[in-house]
Design a protein around this nucleic acid. Structure first.
Lengths: 330, 330
DNA sequence: CATGATGTTGCAACCGATTGCACACTCGGT
DNA sequence: ACCGAGTGTGCAATCGGTTGCAACATCATG
């Protein structure tokens, strides 16, 4: 039903090849024919068939985006950035949600890989080796994960954690609990590392209370253990966990920030809406999505660019102080 | 790099056509050759190129999903359903976020339409006429919107609103404010209609307080006007608005549910996490996504099915009573 | 006026699949 | 021994584009 290259050619009275060139390499065809072709093209509302073009050029004009869980607001934010940037480059986005399942992730990546020019893997659950293998024969950009040799955009976990610790230390907290994320989460490891060094230099004590699901329920589950540490402040793997923790503390009658200060990470929209409003490290999520697209597109244009220095972009976080942190009372 | 049909053919010592048939019409090729082909195929890890197949069959095996705003948790929920169902049918999903912009929506729909077998339009902002026009030459399934002649899955707004009103009426509320959504929102209109008739039959008064953005900020903006109506309860267009409203009420020192009861719609995850936890009408969002895919796939198999009776699926909502509603004190 | 450089266009092959049609072969019946 | 039906396979066209190469026209130059 939609107009094809040949339809345009017929209407313009030229050959298909001329139409193709008039549209993609304008300088090589005579000005008057070019005009005639252009006019015929938009008279017919012609738009090239991406699949057909992709068949011969090897470029589909599509990219894939893989996220672990759409229910975590962190990912929609990144997606929004990806969407926006992709659209402005006239690139379409395939989406896949792996449901936090490493197996499903592998399958989806394989399935998607053949249909796209490149993949953006957001907080992937796969191992470093698996990711390196994928990056071998597919163009890949990682978000929130670092694997040697693979371009990535990440957040400055160390800097963010330092801000959090400094803030708490300044409020007089000396013993701070850390509610970690899943063991397979790269960023959880990074954040704990960042906290450790920050705590050390600031002279405060860091008490890890284990690993929890990166969800509201994970936070609920972690609350009691966090309290039991005797710490006067808690830093959680992400905001969702912090909000779950807040809820459990509330039902237990523990006042935040009176009895306990809580700091989240991510600064999802919900952080500003919780009660008390959550102090959190804002991560430029949308920006990360945009940069990931830029990186990927650059990689496509020049496959060797993967080795360049600009292939690891680290975005700074910013502590948003709200109402869940206050001076230590103990 | 990946193996092609001809690679398999060469390895199996047959022609390309035989390979194609062996894989898609197994019964038509001799059992022994079929086995040989199969073995060659998975020795090479062969998987057909969807684009090439689509070129000739006219079916891409991809569907498109268009949503107004990824930042509203309602949509990721629907997407999750779409994802899951699409994956189980071996269909890939293109995603587009229109940013609540009707113009962008039109453009994205047009761009996507040519790359997919069909489109799922979630709470589209376009007019009925525009949607009907799109459905004319594209396979379309609507979610949360009804347009004559276009298959759709919707929520039973009337039933949901009746439950909300009954609940509030039973608590003694006689004057209930309604915070509407955007004027272009079909579901806002439906919900107001549902509230109207429910209010009438229950003998309570409904006071509309205007139209607001379907966001947290919209709720913040609506709060004061809602209070000014003198109503003892408020129903909002969706949960995000309700939560914004809750926040503003809190800063004004108005107690919920003591001074004012609040009911949201959607029952996003956040509803259970707010303080007070929000009474809300649960809509089976994920289920809606799944059904939309089923509807679309059925439509593809039989284009005439669009006219059948099973093309309008209405999902029931369920009132989740939490802590934001209580007996009227005035 | 022959020559070559330059600019513009068309032909035809190709990307990786699917499919209508024709051909080859087997086998049972006469 | 021959014919017809029935199976199984291959040839070649096709989908909608792109691109190397050749053909042609034009024009300035020697």
């Amino acid at each position: 039903m939609p107009a094809t290259l040949r339809d345009v050619a017929r209407l313009a009275g030229v050959s298909a090849s001329t139409v193709s060139r008039a549209l993609s390499l304008p300088e090589v065809v005579n000005a008057t024919t070019r005009a005639r072709v252009r006019q015929a093209a938009d008279q017919l509302g012609y738009e090239p068939n991406k699949a057909a073009r992709g068949l011969i050029t090897g470029r589909t004009g599509n990219i894939g985006l893989v996220v672990p869980d759409l229910a975590n607001p962190f990912f929609p934010s990144v997606m929004k950035g990806v969407q926006a940037r992709a659209r402005s480059h006239d690139v379409a986005v395939f989406l896949a949600d792996t449901d936090e399942d490493a197996m499903a992730e592998a399958g989806l990546v394989r399935a998607l890989a053949k249909q796209v020019d490149g993949l953006i893997l957001c907080s992937p659950r796969a191992t470093d080796d698996e990711l390196a293998a994928i990056a071998q024969d597919t163009n890949v950009v990682l978000v929130n994960r670092v694997v040697a040799g693979v371009p990535a955009v990440t957040f400055d976990n160390e800097g963010g954690m330092r801000q959090a610790i400094s803030h708490l230390a300044a409020l007089g907290h000396r013993r701070i609990a850390w509610v970690g994320g899943p063991a397979t989460s790269w960023s959880s490891v990074q954040r704990e590392l960042g906290l450790r060094t920050a705590a050390e230099t600031q002279g405060v004590e860091l008490v890890p209370v284990g690993q929890f699901a990166p969800t509201y329920d994970g936070g609920v589950a972690a609350a009691d253990q966090a309290v039991a540490t005797g710490a006067t402040a808690v830093v959680t793997f992400n905001d969702l966990v912090a909000i779950g923790l807040l809820a459990r503390l509330h039902t237990r009658g523990i006042d935040v920030p009176g009895d306990l200060s809580v700091v989240g990470i991510d600064d999802i929209a919900m952080a500003g809406m919780s009660r008390p409003a959550l102090t959190s490290v804002r991560l430029p999520k949308q920006r990360a999505g945009e940069i990931a697209v830029d990186l990927l597109l650059a990689l496509l244009d020049d496959p060797d660019a993967a080795l360049g220095p600009r292939t690891l972009d680290t975005l700074q976080g910013e502590l948003m102080v709200r109402d869940s942190t206050a001076v230590a009372t103990r």
